[in-house]
Amino acid sequence: MTQTTTRYWILAALMLLLLVVTATTPATAQTVQEPEGQRAPTVNSADPYENWNRSVFSFNETVDEWVLRPVAKTYRTVTPDIVDRGVTNFFNNLTEIRNFSNSLFQLKGESAVVAFGRFTFNTVFGLGGIFDVATAFDLPERPEDFGQTLGYWGVGSGPYLMLPFLGPSTPRHFTGLASDSFILPSAWDAVEEPEVYFLRALQIVDKRADLIPAEGIISGDRYTFVRNAFLQRREFLINDGKITADPFANDDEDDLMLDDF
């Protein structure tokens, strides 16, 4: 079986999983019947697996506290700002291939041209993407991923999921993440082992280090804050910046700055 055929089968399996999960998600909030005088807490249809999600969130927080965050803090301490910015730019430049392909899938010709232009300018004139010269040419990044492509074509997000190590997600988002990482063309395909593992590790540490300044805006229940911020950010991206109804509008922590996540 060729590599291309294998990718098609994996993509088909992911799409089937997405359809099954979204089809079995509760459509509305439900309340379990309790004896008279007692009422079970309502279950929000956007987060029907909250108990499980909170357990996974606690696990991820423990891993982050003892492993990832200390490494990220050390990285921020020892890495000069210009080098840190260059590393971030380099990895952002690799995502332009993803932005380009998903812009085509969503019939966004202008966004595809911008992604192609950014990758070309930054790779050629920005020393492989270390310097973001494309922004200076009035070509700002337009993030697009396969999860957004699925949303563009009407696929529902499914329930909110907190995944071990990977963090906040939904079936649609996870399918898109897996497709972008293993199915669709990517600049990572050109990187051989074992270098690819070192670069992936550096990318994770660099991304975690960039999130440290944003930790100060988190207030109230951390789980609720992270959940709301993630879902709002995903809707913001899928709708190209258009504000839509917030499924958690009644929560205390719904006044979030989307660009911080």
Rank of each mutant, 00 (worst) to 15 (best):
E195D: 13
V83C: 04
Y223H: 05
I204H: 06
F146T: 00
T42G: 15
I204F: 00
P185M: 05
W9H: 14
W9E: 12
P143R: 12
F125M: 12
F121A: 15
D246T: 00
G241T: 04
P159Y: 01
T224Q: 15
E141V: 12
V56M: 07
V196S: 14
F230R: 08
Y49T: 08
A245D: 14
L11Y: 14
D255E: 14
N51G: 13
P41E: 10
V63R: 06
V155H: 11
R222Y: 10
F236R: 05
T24W: 14
R54D: 03
W153C: 07
T42Y: 09
P159Q: 04
V124Y: 02
Q232D: 10
Q33Y: 11
F116A: 15
D180A: 08
F119M: 15
L68S: 01
L139W: 04
T175S: 09
L161N: 05
F59Q: 03
S45N: 13
A245I: 07
V114M: 07
L139G: 01
G216S: 15
E50P: 08
L184M: 13
T31H: 14
R234G: 01
E65D: 13
N239V: 02
E61P: 00
T22E: 06
V113H: 08
F137N: 13
N122I: 05
E144H: 10
E235Y: 09
N250T: 12
E141F: 00
A13P: 06
D246V: 03
N102P: 04
V56Y: 01
D260C: 09
D252E: 15
A12C: 12
T95S: 15
G216K: 12
P213T: 01
V205M: 00
T74H: 10
M1F: 13
Q38V: 15
A40V: 06
N53Q: 01
R76P: 07
F125A: 13
G117C: 04
G156V: 09
Q30D: 13
T244F: 01
I238A: 10
T2E: 15
N102H: 01
N99I: 02
D132Y: 00
F230I: 02
A209H: 00
L256C: 06
K242Y: 03
R76H: 06
N250P: 00
G241E: 03
E195Y: 14
Y75M: 05
N93M: 02
D132G: 07
T123K: 03
F121S: 13
N102Q: 04
R118M: 05
Y223F: 09
G220F: 00
V32C: 10
Q148K: 02
S111P: 00
G86N: 03
F146A: 04
W153G: 04
L107E: 05
L184N: 13
A190K: 14
N44H: 12
F59D: 02
E192V: 12
P159L: 05
L258S: 07
D254M: 10
S111Y: 11
P185C: 08
L14P: 08
N92E: 12
T4G: 10
P247H: 07
T123Q: 05
A12T: 11
Y8R: 14
R227M: 04
S111R: 10
T5G: 11
R7A: 06
Q203A: 09
M1P: 10
N102W: 00
E96K: 03
S219F: 09
A190Q: 14
E215S: 11
G154W: 07
T79I: 04
G154D: 04
L150H: 03
L163M: 15
